[in-house]
Amino acid sequence: MDWDFIVGHVNYWLFIVLMMTGLYIVVAKGNLVKKIVGLNIFQTAVFMLYISVGKIDGGTAPIFPTDMKIDPAVVYSNPLPHVLILTAIVVGIATTSLGLALIVRIREAYGTIEEDGIYQIEKDIAAEEYRLHNELKSRRS
């Protein structure tokens, strides 16, 4: 592990730190809106990792001069990740809003957006159903 290797890879590791912060929010926090924010952080970190793969040393943004007189000495960064991530961001907000809409419906159905609360309600419903089931069974026999 020499110095060049560390400088060349520290970027990726920092993106991974950000990703893992997002993942931690998703796993550890019970609030559904916060989980969505965590997913967004994770998503943005993945986007930046992708873009950083396409960066070329000494390169510039992949746009030619308007008059199309292209200087062959100019290095352009890889435009392909840019295209993929650009569309992914807009798709990301569309799916995020779908998640938020689901949260709104969950709140209307359960009265809470905390995971623990929803789990508790589900458990109560299941226990009630189990009780009814046993009652019916004992009546039949």
Binding site: A61, I63, T66, L86, T87, I89, V90
Partner: peptide
Amino acid sequence: DYSPGGGFQAGV
């Protein structure tokens, strides 16, 4: 076509 931008950004 000439500068950063396009349908996705303009729509937003």
